[in-house]
Design a binder for these strands. Sequence first.
DNA 1: GTTAGCACTCGCAAAAGGCGAGTGCTAAGC
DNA 2: GCTTAGCACTCGCCTTTTGCGAGTGCTAAC
Lengths: 343, 343
Amino acid sequence: MSRRELDPRKELILKVVTDDYIESAEPVGSRTIARKYNLGLSPATIRNEMADLEEGGYLKQPHVSAGRIPSHQGYRYYVDALMSQQDLTEEELAVIRSYFADRSRELDSILQQTVKILSQLTRYPSLMLGPTLKPSIFKHVQLISLSAHDLLVLIVTDMGIIENKVIALEAPVSQGDLDRVSYLLNKKLRGQPFAKFKSSLFREIRDEMKADNGIFQKAVDLILKTMETRNKERIYLDGIINILDHPEFKEVEKFKLLMELMEEEERLYRLLSTRQQGIRISIGEENQEEAAQECSLITANYEVGGQVVGTNGVIGPTRMEYAHVVSVVDFMAQKLSEFLSKL
Amino acid sequence: MSRRELDPRKELILKVVTDDYIESAEPVGSRTIARKYNLGLSPATIRNEMADLEEGGYLKQPHVSAGRIPSHQGYRYYVDALMSQQDLTEEELAVIRSYFADRSRELDSILQQTVKILSQLTRYPSLMLGPTLKPSIFKHVQLISLSAHDLLVLIVTDMGIIENKVIALEAPVSQGDLDRVSYLLNKKLRGQPFAKFKSSLFREIRDEMKADNGIFQKAVDLILKTMETRNKERIYLDGIINILDHPEFKEVEKFKLLMELMEEEERLYRLLSTRQQGIRISIGEENQEEAAQECSLITANYEVGGQVVGTNGVIGPTRMEYAHVVSVVDFMAQKLSEFLSKL
DNA sequence: GTTAGCACTCGCAAAAGGCGAGTGCTAAGC
DNA sequence: GCTTAGCACTCGCCTTTTGCGAGTGCTAAC
């Protein structure tokens, strides 16, 4: 990316402007900088530099008689080259560590809690794309008769429940029969990684079933299809209110746009999903999603056994505490990876 | 309650004022009423009546030179005695009916969907308190080994999955052993209503287990405790953004208060939980919850086998379309009751 | 290249003014 | 005695005006 294309003094001023704006949410003027940051430069000099930075597209002025704020390009440069690394405080580390120390919960609530902690630590809305099935190991399938014609199918992986679906049957079946099917499926599949599930394996099972009992044909088909093409990963959200603490959302309309995005899983999914490794920062218009074009999104993928399985992240105004959030999101993804890998 | 304590003309005027204010969100004046509603009364007469209604506490003036709006007492009278019944439109009926016609989903997503439809039909945020365990029938328990020391416990009722928990074991156990325990528990419990679960039954099972295999003692204890004291019912939410369409929430602070409430399950639980039968309307300060004191809450309980198991409802400004929402919430609860009872 | 000085811009907040919807009161009418 | 026309009055709100101040760009001197 674009780095080291500005001379050191311009970089310094861009950094100071960005830092100050992130903190204050007010356009920052040359006087403020001179007074507050002791750079050994007069306001006039700073003004000249700022004019250059504006010409280069790194800063902009909301209106003529105001100070400067970073443009998207300015933020991008800041994030890529200027931002000072900010380590997590002891408290923050402690919160995350102690959270992951307690292991006796099921997957769903672990993820829900994770995203809650993420929003508490960053003070921004946070999101999470739940883990994919692929690298998991099949643990168990169970068919449970709910009524004469309804069948509950449970699929459990080494990480916990992944899928549960009710299937309507045409012909009634007894729990005993279901147990036999469950037993056979488990015998075939237990301990296998999902990644290995191939159509051939399913066909083999189906044929075996057919020989065994014809009436299960349809049910088994459905189950196998469920296993092959499972629903989208669940999306977890927390701390949406945090966004209201920032002046860029004081107008209800702005907030509403974002809130609408939050209520639509499909769009969130598109926003989050990427198999790119490591931390990802999308600033403003870099986001495809229109409602998020005045926002920045910081995400990191988490892994199980070296393979990316999900994403956690934080969304906020482009004027976001990048340094801090990057640290938290990164560390969180790391810990979550460790945690899930241990399961 | 207070009904028929106003003469018919005062009632008429209170009704007209309330209807108009609900629609327009603007204080309504005597001229407007005379012009718009053709009551055969001059503005002056209406003014006199309104002055009386204000003295009686049914109306109030936001400020001297404005029209009148209903007070909480006014809304209460309106709701109890004046509100005209508003039947659901054919479309609305169709939406709900066709929704409940499709049965092949699992409980959790049914409830999630229900609350979504509720908010779409009413255009207010809607809430739902998930069903309690009590009137359900135990269908299945399954112990699944996730790793050497982690055990997934699943409890399934006739309505679908209800509980799944990970339990840490001290000593490793094999899946085969777990299957045996599952089998025994199921033999004892399948088909029993949860309401019949008594400590004595559990003790009996535990004793039998003890004789069978000592190392399961602790696991079984945990499972039984889970069954006895299960977590709070889940709370479902949808359509929070709808509240932003109403001018009473145009100030972010007002909205934030409500949003904070929505993110705290504990408070929502207190707000919703009641075993009172039928429809319930809480207007403004009648709500205990402070954040909801400028709101009204309309809820109805749903039942399985004649026993109340959960609550669904809608929250909105006190200036709410009571008649319509009451119909929707009521019908929805009814259909949901039917649906769940059929399972 | 840096900086002091200065005229200029312009958003914003407070003050001023005018409008209009709505009221209460009074007195006349049915 | 209830109803209503008439009228003076109130007061929130919208618009306009005004003044302030933060900030700028330019110029000229260092």
